[in-house]
Design a protein around this nucleic acid. Structure first.
Lengths: 190, 190
DNA sequence: TCGAAATTTCAGAAACTTCTGAAACGCATC
DNA sequence: GATGCGTTTCAGAAGTTTCTGAAATTTCGA
């Protein structure tokens, strides 16, 4: 592997974590390489840096593009495809959240909805349906929150994060804030 | 598979999703089975329900216990181990978040911290370090938020979720609320 | 201490995923 | 419509994970 020590350490780590993150080693390494690179890279540069086969690079780049985690760039007077990750790490976070939700949560929500439409015949099925209902409701609450928050611009999202649980204190401390929060109408006065 | 149709649909779905969630099919199916069951089950009941080998059940239960996703129960006058999932789906969510963070985020944070301590020699390394710094900072903000929020009781956590982005309006509308919020955390950099 | 019941370990088989090199394909330019 | 450059596809090899049945181990009452 033909990289400065720091970059190599990072790339190797992403390769190892890949399997925990639901991508494979090569995909993880390529992503890490592109994330660190100051310039877009073409496929052959990736081959040289990581010492893996050209076809492996091709397939892995496809997968990263399916995740919207890498972008295609074209340089003037060059037929080759070049690849980058988005500059803004917050944007990367949003993409990651969106894609993981799509793959890891939405299918379950769909299945739960379908099952919950059916008639429960036996007591065992009624109990199962109750449990699935609880799960469905929880996932629903989480995705509603996510859908609400995902559109925020970065500065507001960062502000939201930095507040953390403090917001619940507001709710307890001031009835006015609660009613404001719920109605979105009146300004807050102490 | 020896289950009511509803339960079977749910169990099969969890089996299929397993690989996306970083567990394998059997582990997913066993978890789903236990989640739906009104009673704790012993290993042989799981064997009968899912029609898989006893040793596979044993290993998969170990894994679920390592995740803290299933609990061991003992019935009086019965030597066998019985297994359940926690009742409360919010508790399950908390466990899941904790374990996934431990496996999927913490190692990266550690590696980033180590690499960022090193001296960057070349311009390429300086750029790489800048990128890793951005990633480190973002992950730090997310985990700080998570650490703050994870201890909330369910009703407050649910309240926080139901407010979603409305919180950020409070920040904009009312100087008092802003100063209150900032007095207990670092101001946000734009 | 023995034996019956339950659980765990383990080596190899089966299934699945990843990776490679070779061949096929696409497309500007001549 | 040939050439050259670049990309994608694909069959099979290599590697990894999962699963099983058999054997070993643990546990507890008699």
């Amino acid at each position: 592997m033909n990289l400065p020590p720091m970059n190599q350490a990072f790339v190797l780590h992403f390769g190892e974590m890949g399997s925990r993150w639901g991508i494979n080693r090569t995909v993880g390494q390529i992503y890490a390489l592109l994330f660190l690179s100051p310039e877009p890279l073409c496929a052959d540069q990736i081959v040289d840096a990581l010492e893996i086969s050209r076809s492996n690079v091709s397939i892995s780049l496809r997968e990263l593009m399916a995740w919207n985690l890498v972008l295609l760039k074209h340089l003037p007077d060059d037929r080759r495809d070049f690849f980058t990750t988005p500059e803004d790490v917050w944007q990367i976070l949003r993409t990651l959240a969106e894609e993981r939700k799509k793959r890891e949560v939405d299918p379950t929500l769909t299945v739960l909805r379908e099952i919950l439409l059916q008639e429960a015949a036996t007591p065992a099925e009624r109990h199962a349906q109750k449990r699935m209902g609880e799960m469905h409701r929880l996932i629903g609450q989480l995705t509603t929150w996510y859908d609400d928050v995902k559109g925020l611009e970065t500065s507001r999202l960062a502000a939201l994060l930095s507040m953390g649980r403090k917001i619940t204190r507001l709710v307890e401390t001031s009835g006015k804030v609660v009613s404001f929060a719920r109605s979105r109408s009146r300004p807050v006065r102490e």
